[in-house]
Simulated assay, not measured.
Amino acid sequence: MKEKIKIFLDTDLLEKYLLGSTTTEESLRVERYIAMYPEVREAYNELQENLEIFAKMHALKTPQGLKEQILFRIRQEKRSRSKFYRFAVAASIAALIFAGATYFFYNQNKSLQEENLIVNSKIQDLENDMKIQLEDIRNQYIVLNNPNTRRFTVNGNKKAQELKAVAYVNPVKKLSYINVSNLPQLPEDKCFQMWAEVNGEMVNLGIIKQFDDKEKLLALPYADNAVSYITIEPQGGNETPTVQNIVANIKF
């Protein structure tokens, strides 16, 4: 019986159940194990508490003033449409006299509709960004709490001895992240840049900055036997890595 419980806990069904991504059959199995086995129930409660803490730490705030901007835009639209309808009625009585005014307000309404499309597009982009960030937070939670995750300590070479980082790799979920906890000081015209070798090609992962949040994780492309590098490049970054300026190798 103990072996059966251990096998169940080694799966990610509890995590999937908490995140609402289990099938109906998987959900029934999880609920049955939680009800029957105290060890599973205890693990479930612990995961639930960890997820709540993690979610609170990384809660996303709505951009300041977004609600007011949307309400202001709606009020503008209502006022403009009201004006348009009043002038349309007047134009129907004296079409020749008010033809110019009708045409003017038609253009105004068309312009307002175009602006509304832009506002709606920006709101949609914001929603998509929030979905991506929530998915990233979910993946970070899995990587940090899954027993299959492997941890690699990364140290800089002689060119950057103070560089300290930790890489987290989960071959089951095919996820990998890195936490750069310390970066040495560089001249103002230099910066650190990260790269990953994917399918034989070097992929630019962007410039690394000294984060105020020491727990911040950066996503890495996952691949079997992957290799990532940190180099010193000119300020603003480079299109290709400067091989002689490699300061750290990260092999999974």
Rank of each mutant, 00 (worst) to 15 (best):
K2W: 03
E3W: 00
K4I: 09
F8Q: 15
L9R: 07
T11C: 01
L13V: 04
K16L: 13
L18K: 08
S21C: 05
S21G: 02
T24Q: 15
E25R: 13
E26P: 06
E26A: 14
R29D: 08
I34M: 15
A35G: 06
P38E: 15
E42C: 09
A43T: 07
E46V: 04
E49L: 13
N50M: 11
L51F: 04
E52Y: 07
I53N: 09
A55D: 10
L60H: 01
K67R: 00
R73M: 14
R81D: 11
A94G: 03
A94I: 03
G100M: 09
Y106H: 04
N107W: 08
K122W: 01
I123F: 06
I123L: 15
E127C: 06
D129G: 03
D129N: 00
K131T: 10
Q133C: 11
Q133S: 14
I137C: 13
R138M: 11
Y141T: 02
V143Q: 06
L144I: 04
N145E: 06
N145W: 02
P147G: 08
T149G: 15
R150V: 00
P171C: 06
S176G: 12
S176P: 01
Y177L: 04
Y177D: 10
N179P: 04
N182L: 00
P184Y: 11
L186W: 04
P187K: 07
Q193F: 01
V198D: 12
N199G: 14
E201Y: 04
N204P: 02
L205H: 05
L205E: 10
G206F: 03
D212Y: 07
E215D: 15
L218D: 11
L218M: 10
P221L: 10
Y222Q: 05
A223S: 12
A223Y: 09
S228A: 15
I232G: 01
E233S: 00
E233Q: 06
G237W: 10
G237P: 02
G237A: 07
P241G: 05
P241A: 12
V243F: 02
V243C: 02
V243S: 03
V243G: 05
Q244V: 07
N245H: 09
V247Q: 04
I250W: 00
K251C: 09
